[in-house]
Design a protein around this nucleic acid. Structure first.
Lengths: 354, 354
DNA sequence: ATGAAAGCGCTAACAG
DNA sequence: CTGTTAGCGCTTTCAT
């Protein structure tokens, strides 16, 4: 057993192969022709020595990090896992590493942010999820031509930051259309999400558009605040009933609040879907299991992640921005809308878990 | 508007503050005393210039990456999100970035792995999830004294790699004890997970221990293969019935297979829990929603992630290894075991999603 | 307390 | 095709 005890560097390899470090670099990166014979010697030196290039040295010299950054708000939720899977694997495919940062709260614009965890200094580009970064910082990065892609978020006015979002509006619209056309509902309540949430705003837009297109008037009394969680969904419906609002359907802002709504209805002895139809949004795994099974809307979450990465790597390569991508959403008919289990589309989910 | 168009370096700051780059470095890192007056000048130069240190240069010079690596198998599953949340936030807390890599398949030991995506060259330590890396590579890293923590995985023989796992055995044991003692079941089937899965092995051990301690013989006929997914769970139970095996309870290897089991039972017209009690393992969000609500076992997933990070950062700081951590699991009594909804422990879940 | 200077390990011109 | 040689931007002795 000979040699230094420390990790081998490119120089060690060069010496052992009897070539210059430049040649080793060329072999490793495969971007410049090297005589086969030489390359072979280099390669065996590499494997003999267990040589692995230091990422930092490469980055420093090449000014590329080969790393993508993902900025998220506090992580949670069942759609998070497919999203990350999509992003991670697509990034990998494109030859990038993935640095993940979850902001525990939206930073106040005030502090000069002494330590930005993810930015130009350690990534080649950023995927920015809703509410994970303040807009000033976003604008600054964009101004500096730093590659950025927004997820589930409309680009701030004036900036042309590319983004990937889902068809919230048309998704909600399809839901309401179904309720009206197939099940003849006319007093349809809508449960909003958290204040200022874009998804919620768009979904409500879809809800209103559907009403309008069927000649149904919008009634503010039918609006509740579901908050995108079970408790709020339940409370919202309880309030609706307490207020003696007349409704024969509830379009919840998301699946979680739909579950809350279902619960409130059950406690009040209102039968679903006979007396009240209920729909969600997201198609969480739970949606299939609750009873009645939840009619909802599904977005291709994993693909959204992939698309975001593709846009970002495109930007990094200097390709034209690409603008806004709207990912199609799909109606998932189950039972809570009033459709019979049979009529319900066969569950194509072969949801693989773990 | 003056100045270079490029990102400012430490030299720019030094010049503007009228000090040497060494002093700037000291102010930035705050590890060496600097006269207050000087420090102030430096700091304002920093913020004037919007200076942010290049991560790579720092790493190269300091030989520390301040980055933790997380190695996972193909991501998915609902327990994944709390796990990542725990890891990410604890890492952040300790001042580390998090690099994530999901291996799409267990690499064959054969290939010399030209490009290890996560290792010494870009991280200070690694959290290694079950089946995300081959054992040779693991051994090599460990031999080189590279900080490593295993997740949901027993350290390979002879190595003393610290690990964090859950109390699978006692969890399963509690479940079976409950079934026997409270519900008087004596023909309890067990549904195994995927072949070679450690969690499954341990759970089966718990199952057997519980039988034994109650003087019940182990009957191989009562063992099915649930595969930790719904389809296999369903198939396993179908097979049990086809084989005319007599059973009054099913202890599924995890919640997913329990759901499959429930389904098979329902299709066969066997009433749960009256005729057959069913239990799961994991306490996925779904467990509360299916009917009957699933009695299962819960592990503190987020804490597991945190614990792993704490162990790892300890190692990096040169603290003693710390050995194996077994995270306590908790019985979650619901209805599928035969307990009434009332008797069931109040659901403390205020599961926050999204 | 501060500055000068030597690297950290690699890439990318530039010569040849 | 290959070697030489500047840096990349920062940390860290070593002086002072």
């Amino acid at each position: 057993m000979a040699g230094h005890n420390h990790a081998p560097t490119i120089a060690d390899v060069a010496k052992r192969a009897g070539v210059s470090i430049a040649t080793v670099s060329r072999v490793v990166n495969g971007n410049t022709p090297v005589i086969d014979e030489t390359a072979k010697r280099v390669r065996s030196a590499i494997s003999d020595l267990h040589y692995h290039p230091r990422a930092a040295a490469r980055v420093l010299a090449s000014r590329r990090t080969d790393t993508l950054g993902l900025l998220l708000p506090e992580i949670g939720g069942e759609f998070f896992s497919p999203l990350l899977r999509g992003i991670e694997s697509e990034a990998r495919l494109a030859g990038y590493d993935l640095l993940v940062h979850a902001t525990s709260h939206i930073p106040h614009a005030s502090t000069p942010a002494p330590h930005r965890p993810l930015a130009e200094h350690n990534t080649d580009g950023l995927i920015v999820f809703t509410q994970s970064i303040d807009l000033d910082e976003l604008a600054r990065l964009h101004r500096n031509k730093f590659p950025l892609v927004l997820l589930y978020q409309t680009p701030p006015a004036k900036t042309e930051i590319p983004s990937v979002m889902i068809e919230n509006k048309s998704g909600a619209q399809k839901l309401v259309n179904h309720l009206i056309e197939v099940h003849g509902r006319r007093r349809i309540a809508f449960l909003r999400g958290p204040d200022g949430n874009e998804d919620s705003v768009e979904r409500e837009r879809g809800y209103r558009a559907a009403l309008k297109s069927h000649g149904l008037a919008f009634d503010p009394a039918l609006i509740g605040v579901g908050g995108f969680n079970e408790e709020d969904g339940q409370a919202a419906v309880r309030k609706l009933m307490a207020d003696r609002v007349d409704f024969d359907a509830i379009v919840a802002g998301d699946d979680d609040s739909a579950i809350g709504a279902l619960h409130a209805l059950k406690l009040a002895g209102r039968r679903v879907p006979d007396e009240v139809a209920v729909t969600g949004f997201d198609d969480l795994p739970v949606a299939r299991y609750i009873s009645p099974a939840l009619t909802t809307v599904r977005a291709p979450i994993e693909q959204i992640g992939r698309e975001a990465v593709r846009k970002l790597t495109g930007l990094i390569r200097g390709q034209p921005a690409g603008g806004r991508a709207l990912m199609r959403t799909e109606l998932v008919i189950r039972e809570s809308c009033g459709c019979s289990p049979d009529r319900a589309s066969p569950d194509a989910d072969s949801a693989t878990r773990r």
